[in-house]
C-alpha cells in the first residue's frame, strides 16, 4: 500500500505549498509513490484518521489552527514542520508584539477601503490566539524543514527519505533559515 501523505496550510502564506508544486516533473514520480489524502490542492473536507506523513505549513495563529494541529497529531504517524513559519513562527509571529485587538483594528478598521467593521462574532474568521506560535510549541513535531520557503530540492529530499523509511535528519546542506 502506498504511504498516505497529507499537506496542511495553517498560519502561512501558502509559499511552502507553492514550493511543493515547484517540484515540477518530480510530482509525477511522487504521484506514483504516495497517496495524497489531504491537502489545500485536493478537495477533501476532513483530515483522515490514518495518515503516514503530514507536512504542516505555517505557524499556529488562531483557534482553528490549534484545533487542526491537534487533529493532525492524533491522526498522523509522522509530523513535519514545513518551512520557517511552522519552525520558528517567522513572519506570522511578527504580530506577536501587538494584542489581537490591536491587530483586528488595524486590519478591519485602519486599513479598510469601504465600511470599517470588526467582525464581532467570530463566525466567518477564526479567533486569533494571543500569539502565533511555532508548531512544536503546540504539538510534538518529528522533523523540521527550514527555509522561507523550503526549496523544491529540500522538500524532495525530505519526502524521499521518509518514503525510504528513514527519518529525515536533514543534513546541514539543507539547514538554512530565511
Amino acid at each position: 500500500m502506498k504511504p498516505k501523505v497529507a499537506t496542511v496550510w495553517l498560519g502561512g502564506c501558502s509559499g511552502c505549498h507553492m514550493s511543493f508544486l515547484d517540484m515540477d516533473e518530480r510530482l509525477i514520480e511522487l504521484a506514483d509513490k504516495i497517496e495524497l489524502v489531504y491537502s489545500p490542492i485536493a478537495d477533501v473536507k476532513h483530515f483522515p484518521k490514518d495518515v503516514d506523513v503530514a507536512l504542516v505549513e505555517g505557524a499556529v495563529s488562531n483557534v482553528e489552527n490549534e484545533e487542526m494541529a491537534r487533529i493532525i497529531r492524533r491522526s498522523s504517524k509522522f509530523v513535519l514542520s514545513f518551512g520557517d513559519c511552522a519552525t520558528t513562527g517567522n513572519v506570522t509571529a511578527m504580530r506577536n508584539q501587538f494584542s489581537p485587538d490591536e491587530i483586528m483594528h488595524r486590519a478591519y478598521v485602519e486599513l479598510a477601503d469601504g465600511d470599517p467593521t470588526i467582525p464581532s462574532e467570530f463566525t466567518t474568521i477564526a479567533k486569533l490566539l494571543p500569539q502565533a506560535k511555532p508548531l512544536h510549541e503546540i504539538i510534538k513535531v518529528d522533523a523540521f524543514l527550514h527555509g522561507c520557503p523550503p526549496t523544491p530540492d529540500q522538500i524532495w529530499f525530505a519526502i524521499s527519505e521518509l518514503l525510504a523509511g528513514r527519518t529525515p535528519e536533514l543534513p546541514n546542506v539543507y539547514l538554512r533559515y530565511g
Partner: peptide
Amino acid sequence: NHQCAVCVVNNHCELQDLAYEVGLQY
C-alpha cells in the same frame, strides 16, 4: 525577534551562520 526571510542581512548574518554551525533544527 528574528525573521530571516524579511531581514536586510539574510544570508550574510553571523547569527544565522552560528545556527547552521551548531545544527539548530529548532
